[in-house]
Write a protein that binds this DNA or RNA. Structure first.
Length: 804
DNA sequence: GAGTTTGAAACT
DNA sequence: CAGTTTCAAACTC
C-alpha cells in the first residue's frame, strides 16, 4: 500500500521519496552508506562492507528467515546485522537530534539522537553513514505473550530503521517498524501472524542548527494515525517512513521542530494505502501504542535496559569525538509505578557527533509489555535528557543506574575498544513488571546485543545546541524494582560516588561522572557516561548491549561493517582509526591527551603509564573534575557550530598561533579545516578566506586528495576486475561446471614457463634490446605460455569428456 | 626514527 | 589575567 498521498509526495524531495534514487547512490563511493539501500535487498549478495558502518543489533535472536531487506541499505544484510544474531538490529544514522520532551501527538517510542557534524559537507553522507536499523524479529505472536517466559525479544519483522537524509545530517530518523499488532493491545489474541515489517524512515533535515528531531514510528502507530486497524495487514509490508523535520519557530507551547512522518508501504500488496503525517516533536518518539495506551518505547533503549537479569549487557566503549555528548544510564530498576515518561534512552549511542538514543518505556506501561520489545526487568524507566549547553550544544543522555552500577570492562580480542559490560544486578525474579503480562520481563532474559560497527571516526562535531535543558530526576526505585547484583565479576565503571558540584549542571558533567542518587530516589544513581561508553562508533568497535548471559563473552563480536561517517568517506572513516596517543607524562589524564580530551579511554595507544582506563577510575574521575574546575567547558567540542553552514563553524576559543601562520595542523582552526575568526589571537594569520597561501594549500590538499581517491578507485577497480575476471574465467575453464581433469599449472609447467621467460630475457639481452623491448618480449612470451597452458587444458578437458 | 617546532594546556 | 612551563602532536630531516 502506498501510504503517501500524491500531494505529499510532491512536496517531498526526490531523494526522499524516491527509493530508487537512494539506491542509485550506491555507485558513488563517497556517498554515505545509507544511500546504498537496494530496492530489493539481496542480503546474501551484498558485501558487508558496503554499507552500514554502524550497526547496532539489539536482539541476539534473529530468525534466519528474517531479513532486514526493508532497511535502507543493502549492506544491512542479514550477515551484517544478523551476525550478532540478535533479533533486533539497529541502523544508526547520525543526526543532530536530541530527545525532547515536547509534547507530540504521537508518543515517542524510541528516540534517536544524533548530531550533525560540522564537517559534513553532504547531507546524505551523514545520514547514510549513520543509520541505525533496529530489527526485531519475533517468531510468532505467541512469543509476545510468552515474553515473560521467553526473555528473548522477539517480534516478527520489527525493524527499526533510522536514516538521516537531512542535508545537514542533523535530522535523525528512527523508525521502529513494528508488527501491526500492538503488544499491549494484542496481548490477548494478538495478531498472530504479524510478519516482519520493514520500515524505512528518512529524515530530511533542516539545517544543522535545527533542533534534533527524533521520531520513531512503528507500523502500528502509523496505522493508528491512519486510522487503519492495527491488526490489518502489516504483514509482509515494507514500510517506508519519511520524516521531514522542519524547523519551526520555537514556541513554548509547541514543539520546536516539527517532523512529518510519512509512512509508506513499499509493498502495496493487499494493503490499503495509508498515509500518516504526524508532527514529531524533537526528542520524542512515536510509539506504536494506540492512543490511550501508554506509548511503547523502542527497543534500543530496551536493549540496554533489557539486560537480562542474569545476564549483563555489554557495552563497547568507543571513543567518541564529541565529549560533549554524555549519556547517563539509569541502571536502577524503575519503580513499578513509574510513569512511562518519555523516558528516553537507556542507551545513547553517539557516533562521533552521532548519537543514537533509545528510549525505553516505563516498564509498567502495559502497552510496552505487549510489545515485542520486551524490556528487561532490569530496565529502568530511563530518563534521557538532552542537556543543551548554552554556548555549545551538548547532548547528554542520562541513564539511571541501579545501585551499584555494574560495569565490567571487557576486552575483546582483536578489538581496539574497551568494552564495558553493564550488568544489572536485578535478579530474575525481581521486577515490578513481571506482574503485568505486558512487561517485557522475558525480554530481559534474552540478550539484546547491540553491535555498533563504526568506522573509525574522529571528527570535530558541531553539536546541536540542546534547546531544552531538562533536569534529570532520578526515579525512585521501588522495592520491586530493585535489583540485587548477582554477578560477582561486576565492576563499576563509574563509582556512584556523588559529585554534587557537578550535578547541577549536567551540561558540564564530564564523562564518567556519577551522580549521587537524589534524595528519595532510592538507590538509583546516575552516571554520566560519555557516549563512548555506550557506543564505539568511531572505531571498529561495536557496542553490545546484551543482557543475555550468552553475550557475556566476547564472542558476540560482530563483523565490522565499514561505514562512512559524518560525511567522511568510508575510506576516511574506516581506514583511519583514531590515532593512538603517545602520552608519556600526563598519564593520559590531562587534556594534552587527545583520548582523554575526547572523553575516550585509551585503547591501543602508545601511552606510558596510562591512567585513562577503567583500571584507574578514581584517578580518571578526579582528573576530569580537575579539568572541569579549570574549564567548565573543557570537554565540549572546540569547534562550535556556526550560524548556518559550514562556513560558520568556528573555533570556540580561537587559536593563538604565532609562527605557523595558521596554515599548519598546529593550528586548531586549520586542523579543523575552518578559517580563523575574529576571536582568534593568532599572529600572522593566513588562514582566512582570501588568503592566497591558504588557497594554494587547499588547492594542493584537494589535488592530493583527488589523487588519493583516484588511486584508491583504480585499485578498487583493478581488484574488482581481477575478481570479475576470475569469476568469469573459471567457468570457461571448467566448462560444464566441472573441474578440469588435471591441474595444468604444475610445478613442472611453472618451471618450464619460467625457463621460457628467462630464455626470452637472455635473448633480449644478447641482442642488446632496450629494456622496454625486453619487457615486452618477456610478456609476450608469457602470454604465449599461458595460451599454451590454456589450450592444453581445454584439450585435455575435451579428451577427458570424450574418454571418460 | 630522532630531533625540532609548535601551540594548547597547565601552572605560577 | 599574564607570563612561564609542560606536554604531546606536528613537522622536519
Amino acid at each position: 500500500m502506498d501510504v503517501v498521498p500524491p500531494e505529499l509526495n510532491s512536496i517531498l524531495p526526490d531523494e526522499i521519496m524516491d527509493t530508487e534514487a537512494i539506491v542509485m547512490e550506491e555507485d558513488i563511493p563517497t556517498e554515505d552508506p545509507a544511500s546504498l539501500v537496494p530496492k530489493e535487498p539481496e542480503l546474501t549478495q551484498v558485501p558487508m562492507e558496503t554499507d552500514v558502518s554502524e550497526i547496532v543489533s539489539l536482539c541476539p535472536t534473529v530468525a534466519p528467515s528474517q531479513r532486514t531487506t526493508a532497511l535502507t541499505t543493502s549492506t544491512t544484510t542479514d550477515s551484517t546485522l544478523c551476525s550478532i544474531s540478535s533479533g533486533t538490529q539497529l541502523l544508526l544514522t547520525s543526526s543532530g537530534l536530541k530527545p525532547a520532551s515536547a509534547p507530540s501527538t504521537t508518543k515517542p517510542t524510541s528516540p534517536v539522537v544524533g548530531q550533525a557534524l560540522p564537517k559534513l559537507s553532504t547531507p546524505f553522507t551523514l545520514s547514510a553513514n549513520h543509520q541505525i536499523i533496529l530489527n526485531k524479529v519475533t517468531t510468532s505472536p505467541a512469543t509476545d505473550s510468552k515474553t515473560s517466559g521467553n526473555p528473548v525479544l522477539k517480534q516478527e519483522g520489527q525493524k527499526l530503521v533510522v536514516a538521516s537524509l537531512s542535508k545537514t545530517g542533523q535530522p535523525i530518523v528512527l523508525a521502529l517498524p513494528r508488527t501491526g499488532t500492538k503488544p499491549g493491545t494484542t496481548q490477548g489474541g494478538g495478531d498472530a501472524k504479524t510478519q516482519p515489517q520493514q520500515f524505512k524512515v528518512v529524515t530530511i533535515g533542516g539545517r544543522t542548527d535545527s533542533k534534533p528531531v527524533v521520531g520513531v514510528q512503528t507500523a502500528s502507530t502509523a496505522s493508528q494515525l491512519l486510522g487503519s486497524s492495527q491488526h490489518t495487514t502489516l504483514q509482509a509490508q515494507q514500510l517506508k517512513t519519511v520524516q521531514i523535520p522542519k524547523k519551526t519557530p520555537v514556541s513554548a507551547a509547541g514543539p520546536l521542530i516539527t517532523q512529518f512522518i510519512i509512512t509508506k508501504a513499499l509493498n502495496n500488496k493487499g494493503l490499503s494505502s495509508q498515509t500518516s503525517v504526524s508532527p514529531v516533536v524533537p526528542g520524542r518518539v512515536l510509539t506504536q501504542s494506540t492512543p490511550g495506551t501508554p506509548p511503547r518505547t523502542i527497543t534500543i533503549g530496551e536493549t540496554l535496559t533489557s539486560t537480562p537479569q542474569t545476564s549483563s549487557s555489554k557495552v563497547a566503549i568507543s571513543p567518541l569525538k564529541s565529549p560533549s555528548k554524555l549519556t547517563v544510564v539509569s541502571v536502577a530498576s524503575p519503580s513499578p509505578g513509574s510513569p512511562q515518561k518519555s523516558v528516553t534512552l537507556p542507551l545513547n549511542v553517539a557516533l562521533g557527533p552521532q548519537i543514537l538514543t533509545v528510549q525505553q518505556p516505563a516498564t509498567t506501561s502495559p502497552a510496552k509489555a505487549g510489545t515485542s520489545q520486551s524490556t528487561t526487568q532490569t530496565v529502568k524507566p530511563v530518563q534521557t535528557m538532552t542537556v543543551g549547553g548554552v554556548g555549545t550544544p551538548q547532548f547528554k543522555t542520562i541513564f539511571p543506574l541501579a545501585t551499584p552500577p555494574n560495569v565490567q570492562q571487557i576486552q575483546v580480542p582483536g578489538s581496539r575498544f574497551h568494552y564495558v559490560r553493564l550488568v544489572t544486578a536485578t535478579t530474575g525474579s525481581n521486577t515490578a513488571q513481571t506482574g503485568s503480562p505486558s512487561t517485557n520481563t522475558a525480554s530481559i532474559q534474552t540478550a539484546k546485543p547491540v553491535v555498533v560497527n563504526p568506522g573509525a571516526v574522529r571528527m570535530s562535531v558541531p553539536i546541536v545546541p540542546a534547546q531544552t535543558i531538562k533536569q534529570v530526576v532520578p526515579k525512585p526505585l521501588t522495592s520491586t524494582a530493585q535489583v540485587v547484583t548477582s554477578q560477582t565479576q561486576q565492576r563499576l565503571i563509574m563509582p556512584a560516588t556523588p559529585l554534587p558540584q557537578i550535578q547541577p549542571n549536567l551540561t558540564n558533567l564530564p564523562p564518567g561522572t556519577v551522580l549521587a542518587p537524589a534524595p528519595g530516589t532510592g538507590n538509583v544513581g546516575y552516571a554520566v557516561l560519555p557516549a563512548q561508553y555506550v557506543t564505539q562508533l568511531p572505531q571498529s568497535a561495536f557496542v553490545t548491549l546484551a543482557s543475555s548471559s550468552s553475550f557475556s563473552t566476547p564472542t558476540t563480536v560482530q563483523t565490522q561493517a565499514k561505514l562512512p561517517l559524518n560525511g567522511l568517506s568510508a575510506s576516511d572513516t574506516t581506514s583511519r582509526p583514531r590515532k593512538p596517543c603517545n602520552c608519556t607524562k600526563s598519564q593520559c589524564l590531562k587534556l594534552y591527551c587527545d583520548c582523554f580530551a575526547n572523553g575516550e579511554f585509551c585503547n591501543n595507544c602508545n601511552c606510558i603509564n596510562c591512567f585513562n582506563n577503567l583500571d584507574h577510575e578514581s584517578e580518571r574521575l578526579k582528573a576530569i573534575k580537575a579539568c572541569l574546575d579549570r574549564n567548565p567547558v573543557a570537554f565540549k567540542p572546540k569547534i562550535g557550530k556556526g550560524k548556518e553552514g559550514e562556513s560558520d563553524r568556528r573555533h570556540s576559543k580561537g587559536c593563538n598561533c604565532k609562527k605557523s601562520g595558521c596554515l599548519k595542523n598546529y593550528c586548531e582552526c586549520y586542523e579543523a579545516k575552518i578559517m580563523c575568526s575574529s576571536i582568534c589571537k593568532c599572529v600572522g594569520c593566513k588562514n582566512f578566506e582570501e588568503s592566497p597561501e591558504r588557497k594554494t594549500l587547499m588547492h594542493l590538499a584537494d589535488a592530493a586528495e583527488v589523487r588519493v581517491q583516484q588511486q584508491t578507485a583504480a585499485k578498487t577497480k583493478l581488484s574488482s576486475q581481477i575478481s570479475d575476471l576470475l569469476t568469469r574465467t573459471t567457468p570457461a575453464f571448467t566448462s560444464g561446471g566441472g573441474k578440469l581433469p588435471y591441474t595444468f599449472v604444475t610445478k613442472e609447467v611453472a618451471e618450464v614457463t619460467c625457463d621460457c621467460l628467462l630464455e626470452q630475457a637472455e635473448q633480449a639481452e644478447l641482442t642488446n634490446q632496450p629494456y622496454a623491448t625486453a619487457e615486452r618480449l618477456i610478456l609476450e612470451e608469457f602470454g604465449r605460455c599461458l595460451m599454451r597452458i590454456i589450450s592444453s587444458a581445454g584439450k585435455a578437458k575435451t579428451d577427458c569428456s570424450i574418454n571418460c
